[in-house]
Design a protein around this nucleic acid. Structure first.
Lengths: 154, 154
DNA sequence: TATTGTTATACTCTATAACTATA
DNA sequence: TATAGTTATAGAGTATAACAATA
């Protein structure tokens, strides 16, 4: 809670010293490259993120997918509408609980996903290449730590 | 350009292995904490980013500020409208070129900015604290490298 | 009563196009 | 002609509230 306006313009940081700026612009840059590379599949990096969750494990409901991605369940509707219309996923009522939709990749969707994921992976490798193998893996580890740990006292 | 769909579900990555996911969620988390801490100043982290550029140096036009932040000049209008209405900045026609507005902090704005920047800095320190001093500075250096270097061949 | 998916709605951030005043 | 700021507008992404079907 320190409120000392003690220093003059010497304390003004450049954007490249600000962690939030760096995280945002690194993300925007990578997202831009990834979206450009995924354009030929007709999907965005956002779609690929959802497909990853859907492909990643056991049958997922819309709400579970939304939860993992950190978006609202209402936001999943339009996203899945587009993926279903493109023949990439199908909605199927859950057998155990007919309120829920189980989301599954179609055969086409799974093949496309695997190709798209390889492309996205290659883009990431290029993007992080400047850091070297160790630098890139250190970056990932640090980011994982930040994402996993809640800051309690702000 | 490798398109080998060679592996089965073993190649499906968890979101926490995906660099774009980590960058996005780390940014969202930090932005959330920062916005909460800045609420008492009546500004957002986005506003603070603009104030940083305005406070940082020589007289800036709206378009220069927008350029540094990587947003469109049209997006600056509403942002500056709010800051000006709150008495934080003033627009002044440039003497050399009367098409341009020079953006300056008011006395109140400068004092508030310095306080707000201290608060934002403290939030960042808490947020990155889990990494330790070296880890945090390594993270910054890596992100700076990513933001600075364009990926040419995607 | 509570929950899942859905729709309607709104708010923010962003960008494009056209206008104005200056250059 | 070109540029800085502005306005109008539209497109994403997000969120809240309310509804139908189901639990």
């Amino acid at each position: 809670m320190s409120s000392r306006a003690d220093s003059g313009s010497a304390s003004v940081r450049y954007p490249h010293e600000v962690l939030g700026y760096l995280l945002k612009h690194a993300h925007l840059a990578l997202e831009g490259y990834t979206d450009a590379a995924l354009a030929r599949f007709g999907i965005t990096s956002r779609d690929l993120g959802a497909l990853r969750v859907i492909a990643g494990g056991k049958a997922r409901s819309q709400q579970e997918v939304a939860g993992v991605l950190g978006v609202d369940r209402t936001s999943m509707v339009a996203l899945l509408d587009a993926l279903e219309q493109a023949g990439i996923v199908v909605r199927r009522p859950s057998e155990g609980d007919r309120r829920r939709n189980v989301i599954e990749l179609t055969k086409f969707g799974r093949e496309m996903f695997l190709d798209a994921e390889q492309v996205a992976l290659a883009v990431e490798k290029d993007f992080a290449g400047i850091l070297g193998d160790k630098g890139a893996s250190d970056l990932r580890r640090s980011l994982r730590a930040l994402v996993a740990s809640p800051v309690l006292d702000v």
